[in-house]
Design a protein around this nucleic acid. Structure first.
Lengths: 341, 341
DNA sequence: CTGTTAGCGCGTTCAT
DNA sequence: ATGAACGCGCTAACAG
């Protein structure tokens, strides 16, 4: 493997000029030719390690996720990777297995590796480990999940607003008995989505009966059984809203198991669109397709990449102003919501 | 951010001794104490860039996949990441979008980044870009897919043997009209799996009728319609074997759509177990569960990580002997295969 | 625009 | 076991 010194010898041009050329600066045409010829001949490739040592930039970005196997993340990884690799950055992937302790550890790991920035879907409530990075001027971008009282760039979706609007639509269609099947308390998105539902119900002055708010036992655990219990109770809802795709799948299972008809026996709205998941595309045969709140998953990844690049390549101003990009979900109304008016 | 020189000043011990200590060599107890104290005080962390420049090792491994969003890969990434991060290696993830040109480009990208090794699920037929790496003594490990005539480490499963055995079981159960729904020609696993089916049929001297081998139009495209056509033909099979999970899902869709009963109207065996996919766990309600060939997905990732580490950390002997680890799939027989005897 | 010079922060001889 | 000195390959500051 040849070095820049070999190119210097071979071309007769000084290594500084070569270095400048390699970094896109102007060089006289005659020198350019000599340099290119030498590089070609020697199959020279720049050594990014040496370069990093000098510049303090690794052209590497860490991406830290709770669980790569969650269907939500792979498409995000894909769009992230596309943008970043395109720009010459490599993506170091870390998984923290939903474990806040491991999250901190991985953050340390990435910082130790001297990444230029970190994109993280954090499970932390306080984010002091992230604050530490920011204090050290290491760019961090919160993906999908905000952390309260942390001044940090973020790319998220309008969780609260989305369920608020969806609930309102349900109410406009004449529904009052609306149940919400929610994700766990410790998940930012689960909490936000629940808030939107509550706000819409309050605004319409509809009382939420006991038992209409159902929570799965574990992360990603569909509340199928609790859902069936609810439907068999003395006062079943006319519409259920599933807080994420796993819950929606649980609802589907419950529906099939108990032989309900949609929307005759029950109306359904789900956060997340199962037809966006490649392996679930087949669910076309389940009719009618659920009304859903669709997240701009590809854009989430792309914007996250763009934003952190902007922060990395731009100047880190002293008066750091965090930028929060909130992407809008779209709402797809189907026949799965009965019109009760 | 402090350097080893700061530690030298703070501790009064020379940086060589400090360096040695950091790399696990023996140091006198008195020096050890001084060094540790200084490191603690300064919150010193070793700079891996400078270290890499000297050692030519980046403690970084590239993992190159055709498509992160394929359900098959995320669990592999997860187990890979776990093992590698544990050992201090970071994982650079690259996606080549099923595009052989992009695959080569990404391989170049990773090599340019000076990764210590590359794990790749290649789509290349010839692998000359991989041979180039090997010639340069850069360890490569083929994941899930072999490349003929390439002397390279690999971790794969017993694709051919698995379908061979499964087909034999079907035959033993009295089936002769067995159709095979296969993946595309350009996919290593699709080809291997098909071979096993053919071998078993030949061995049993069962002629495969025209139309019994069905191929999806695109990557990952379930051959649902072709499957339905086949079932409506004058000579429908009594058993179909789906070559991968996407095809199995297509079969499922076809079954639901046309109202078939399993195993009364048709027996089904699928490569891949849909209950291994988190989002498909719900499919418990589809009865009976498909008979399946289950891949040891977690082990695939783990063994791949272990093997490449072994190659990286071991000596690269002159007489390079490629190591191919073939993991066994397991076979789960359910009521989805009728006994015709 | 160019070449000379001086480090970036470590690991590694080589004597001691 | 230790410390002094050198160099990994590159970029940046300087003077021209």
């Amino acid at each position: 493997m040849s070095t820049i010194l070999d190119v210097e010898r071979e071309s007769g041009v000084s290594k500084s000029t070569i270095s400048r050329f390699l970094n896109g600066k102007n060089v006289t045409e005659s020198n350019r030719i000599k340099i290119v010829a030498a590089i070609d001949k020697l199959e020279y490739q720049i050594n990014p390690i040496a370069s990093s040592l000098k510049t303090n930039r690794t052209n590497t970005i860490g991406i830290l996720l709770p669980d790569v196997t969650d269907t939500f993340f792979p498409p995000i990884i894909k769009s992230l990777e596309e943008v970043l690799t395109q720009k010459g950055y490599s993506v170091i992937l870390c998984n923290y297995q939903q474990d806040v302790k491991l999250e901190k550890q991985r953050i340390q790991f990435l910082a130790g590796k001297r990444v230029d920035g970190i994109i993280v879907a954090s499970s932390s409530k306080t984010g002091e480990h992230i604050q530490t990075l920011l204090n050290n001027k290491i760019p961090v971008l919160l993906l999908d999940r905000q952390i309260p009282n942390l001044e940090c760039d973020a790319v998220i979706v309008d969780n609260e607003e989305a369920t608020y609007r969806a609930t309102k639509v349900a109410i406009q269609k004449g529904h009052t008995k609306i149940a919400f099947l929610r994700g766990p308390d410790f998940e930012y998105t689960a909490v936000e989505r629940f808030k939107g539902y509550v706000r819409a119900m309050k605004e319409a002055e509809i009382l939420i009966p006991d038992g209409y708010v159902v929570q799965g036992d574990f992360v990603r655990y569909s509340c199928k059984n609790k859902f069936i219990d609810l439907m068999r109770s003395t006062n079943p809802p006319t519409l259920v809203m599933a807080g994420n795709i796993y819950i929606a799948i649980g609802v589907l299972e419950g529906i099939v198991e108990s032989g309900m008809k949609i929307p005759e026996d029950l109306s359904v709205i789900s956060f997340d669109d199962y037809t966006q998941v490649p392996v679930l595309k087949f669910m076309n045969f389940i009719l009618p397709k659920f009304t859903c709140i669709r997240q701009p998953i590809e854009a989430l990844g792309r914007r996250a990449a763009e934003l952190i690049l902007h922060r990395i390549e731009g100047d880190w101003e002293d008066d750091f102003v965090p930028e929060v990009v909130q992407l809008r979900t779209s709402f797809e109304l189907t026949d799965s919501v009965a019109d009760l008016r």
